[in-house]
Design a protein around this nucleic acid. Structure first.
Length: 571
RNA sequence: GCGCCUGUAGCUCAGCUGGAUAGAGCAACGGACUUCUAAUCCGUAGGCCACAGGUUCGAAUCCUGUCAGGCGCGCCA
């Protein structure tokens, strides 16, 4: 409704441009930085100044004078080279009624555009998710929610690297932990996963899989040398039976890790539509097919026994990279190209990957490969910058090797899902994030997330109180229409910005904008609350204010919901 | 050396597809709870928008260069 009011305004401006000067104008409509100016504004006079050879102020005057204002607006005021527009009171009342009527739809758009796929987190299933994955999960899931509300058919995806050396390494570490758990001394290698979580998994596994463990030890027999990754390599490769045992253990630990990741994400209000397995891709023949396709197009060359993708023929700024190693193995890059091809073939028109800054070097290559496959323009990488944890003003040092990484699960345990999500989302993706643990832990006014939640809880209390006094929060539309006071209209005007905030957030793939909108909305509500009583002896005023409160509450709840943050009834 | 991200109030950050007096939260200072939630509100103070040029009617925003911090430049994933 709001957006159509804007469109009406644009149409009226275009019409006036033709009438006055016989030219086609393309007005930009924006929300003025200061709400005192108005609800919407255009800088069209600035843009016409040169062509019309008149001052912007003069043009603004003429244009606003001749403009036939749509019914949704009550005024058009020239201000220098701007024209400021104000919504009519009636328009705002209808808006409030609409919000109360269908709160879940507010700001929503009808389905439009093609299918969107957003891939994020995609951490290797070799250990628990860390805080970098936490940021990706928060931002990615919020983005998916926002795009859906904005009318985009959107799917979330996690690429599960369940093949390759690191999985084998995981399995070896796991086996060593099982052996260790029996009381034998083991030695880990440089590439081993030494985190405590594998020792814990080994205990859990041994408790519920006695036969598998006995099988393993029956093969080991009375071997009493050093149990190490090198030992494992020789021992399990020696005969097919052992190999089978190892493979069984490998898939066990892999499934355990994958499930643990899934559970952690669920607990972080991040639902993934598709966990896509690398092994499925490898086994399907698509990787070989993709490589063959590129080779047939003459986009590859052989050197040092390896097959290279000749990137510069697609993009001169990029360097060639290896698709097939000299030992015949596909590289990660080759498999990843096939994976993206697979996504497109699954019917996605827009593919977004949220990558960390450490993968920046692959963007150009991947885009070149996508272009070579004939899918140019369908693939974008959203680079999400890194996370530093701060405690006592100092960076928390994290090192995988020393096993002192802070996991997503620990972070949630520490500060809670709401706080963690808010901190992660309330920042531009490109901005490096300093996550202040002390601030996040503080259950006080120092913590910005509570500001928004508190507004919601306060309103909930008011509505409860109103109900007890006989005022039904589901205010009647007609009463609402005649009973709104000027101060309340200011709040309604802030609500009217929600659809713009949502649309911009979706268009720019920028979830953080919603955080700031919600802070602003809460900021508009709290002073109103301090100044005015909602429930009073004046029935008409009470009804109107109750309705207004309900509209604000619904919008806060909707916005927080899209961000995956709870909207508490009381605090 | 090359590439990407960042540099805005004491701190953490918005604003960056050029537009109105550069904003918010926290911290600081002074006020406000017999009332629907003080996790709140009102007020004060706080800025060569890293620096230097350029483009423009207009630059925090675009371009060039410099400085500072982070990340990346493997037949690793």
């Amino acid at each position: 409704m709001i957006l159509s009011a804007r469109d009406e305004l644009v149409a009226a401006l275009i019409k006036t441009g033709r009438e006055l000067w016989d030219i086609d104008v393309s007005p930009e409509i924006a929300i003025p930085e200061n709400m005192d100016f108005g609800d919407l504004a255009t800088n069209l006079p600035f843009q016409l100044a040169r062509e019309l050879r008149r001052s912007p102020a003069q043009i603004a005057g003429e244009l606003s004078g001749a403009l036939k204002l749509p019914a949704s607006f009550k005024s058009a005021e020239p201000a220098g080279g701007f024209i400021n527009f104000k919504f009519s009171d009636e328009f705002l009342r209808v808006l409030l009624a609409e919000i109360i009527d269908k709160p879940a739809d507010f700001g929503g758009m009808p389905p439009h555009g093609g299918k969107v796929n957003i891939e994020f987190v995609s951490a290797n299933p070799t250990g628990p998710l860390n805080v970098v994955s936490a940021r990706a999960a928060a931002v990615g899931s919020a983005l998916v929610n926002i795009l859906r509300h904005a009318g985009r058919d959107t799917s979330s995806e996690y690429y599960l690297n369940d093949a390759g050396n690191q999985i084998r390494e995981l399995a070896v570490s796991f086996v060593l932990r099982i052996i260790e758990q029996r009381g034998f001394a083991v030695e880990f290698g440089r590439d081993s996963y030494r985190g405590d979580y594998l020792a814990d998994e080994a205990v859990l596994f041994a408790d519920s899989n006695e036969t598998a463990v006995e099988e393993l030890f029956s093969q080991i027999g009375d071997f009493r040398g050093t149990f190490s990754p090198e030992w494992a390599q020789d021992f399990f490769d020696e005969d097919p039976k052992r190999k089978a045992i190892f493979n069984g253990l490998q898939s066990s630990i892999l499934e355990r890790m994958a499930n643990s990741i899934r559970e952690t994400l669920d607990g972080f209000r991040t639902s993934i539509d598709t966990f896509f397995r690398e092994t499925a891709l490898r086994e399907s023949g698509e990787v070989a097919e993709t490589i063959e396709f590129l080779r047939a197009k003459g986009l590859t060359f052989e050197e040092d026994g390896a097959l290279w993708f000749d990137t510069p023929t697609i993009d001169p700024a990029e360097e060639p990279f290896v698709l097939v190693k000299s030992d015949g193995q596909w590289t990660y890059g080759a498999v990843d190209i096939a994976y993206h091809k697979n996504k497109i073939e699954r019917g996605f028109d827009e593919i977004y990957d949220i990558w960390g800054p450490d993968h920046h070097g692959h963007i150009g290559r991947m885009k070149a490969a996508i272009k070579a496959l004939g899918f140019e323009g369908k693939f974008e990488v959203l680079t999400l910058q890194q996370v530093n944890l701060l405690e006592g003003g100092e960076k928390v040092k994290m090192s995988k090797r020393e096993g002192n990484i802070v996991t997503l699960a620990e972070l949630v345990e520490d500060v809670g899902v709401d706080v963690a999500r808010f901190f992660f989302i309330a920042r531009r993706m490109e901005a490096h994030l300093d996550f202040d643990l002390d601030l996040a832990r503080a259950e006080s006014d120092e913590n910005p997330v509570y500001y928004v939640q508190y507004a919601h809880a306060r309103i909930s209390g008011i509505l409860e109180h109103a109900k007890n006094r006989g005022f039904d929060p589901r205010a009647d539309r007609k009463e609402l229409a005649s009973l709104i006071h000027p101060e309340e209209l200011a709040l309604a005007r802030k609500l009217a910005q929600w659809p713009f905030a949502l649309a911009n957030s979706a268009e720019e793939m920028a979830p953080h904008q919603l955080c700031f909108y919600l802070i602003e909305l809460a900021q508009a509500f709290h002073p109103f609350y301090a100044k005015h009583r909602v429930v009073s002896d004046d029935e008409a005023v009470t009804m109107a204010r109750v309705a207004l409160c309900r509209a604000i509450k619904e919008t806060l709840a909707l916005g927080l919901g899209l961000l995956g943050i709870s909207a508490p009834e009381n605090m």
